[in-house]
Amino acid sequence: MDKKNSLTLLILTVCLVVFPFIVTNTYYISTMVFVGINGIIAIGLSLLMGCAGQISIGHAAFFGLGAYTSAVLTAKLGFHPWCAFFLGILLSSCIALIIGIPSLKLKGHYLAMATLGFGEITYIVFNELTDITGGPSGIGGIPKIYLAGYAMNTDIKYYFFVWAFLLLILTLSLNLIHSRIGRALRSIHDSEVAANAMGVNTSKLKIQVFMISAVFGSVAGSLYTHYVTFVSPSSFGLFFSILLVMMVVIGGMHSVWGALIGAALLTILPEFLRALKDFEIFVYGAVLLLIMIFLPRGLIGGLEYLFNRLIKKV
């Protein structure tokens, strides 16, 4: 990781630590927990989409797999939450491997369709496998998770818990991007043929990054489950998959920071728009449209542009 990223990471950490001391309203803290959870998946998806250039419109499935593994194993079978957490990761990465091998041979819109189909099938299974998942009514009574003997049972504790995970995942992702493997992933994005001709095993790398992003999704899912202590299929459908893609693109695909900003915007915006009632969906669509038309490189692209202008002036 270079200096700029380390510094930004440091500033972010400081802001995050200070935040709950300034804003004590639990509603805002709780919204920030969801920003963190969505941010973790979005960072994973950004590695896949922004870095390696492979789209997935089915990532809600991995979020759901993590969430349901934690929910079923802890609430119904009495597993230890951390044990369920890691089994969720295992399950998601195995499924990512099985789905990834045939899917990632596909290109462009065909890949979009395949991942979309996978996401929808998973969603239907969550709904129909009533014996295990509880069907549309979901699973409740999920226990809290413990960290070093402390129950993560308040918004503020969960806030620090989730954002610690996010910072860890962000650091690992930045490391990955600025490495031999990250460079190879970016080469796939630009020209898969040329990357292959330069000795990059593109099929293997695409599957690996798909698995990594699935693992991040699963982690977020487990964190979600132990926070809301209730899961039902409606949180893991096509709409959420599309929302994730939008977080990555609106924030700026070329950077994991973009994914984080996108996750923040698209998690916080609906909370503000709620006051508009029926007009919410309308304003939401308009905001997305305007950002895409006027900031093709996303919010982070816009910020970079402003920052560079500022530097030039000084």
């Binding site: 599309i242 939008m246 969906i281 939401y284 308009a286 449209l289 093709p296």
Partner: peptide, 24 residues
């Protein structure tokens, strides 16, 4: 109006439009 269209931008734009249509 999109100046430098890429496939992903266009996908998001059409999704945004679909949300708008739904709202209308």
């Amino acid at each position: 109006p999109i100046k430098k269209p890429t496939v992903v931008t266009l996908i998001i734009v059409t999704i945004a439009v679909s949300i708008l249509f739904k709202g209308v």
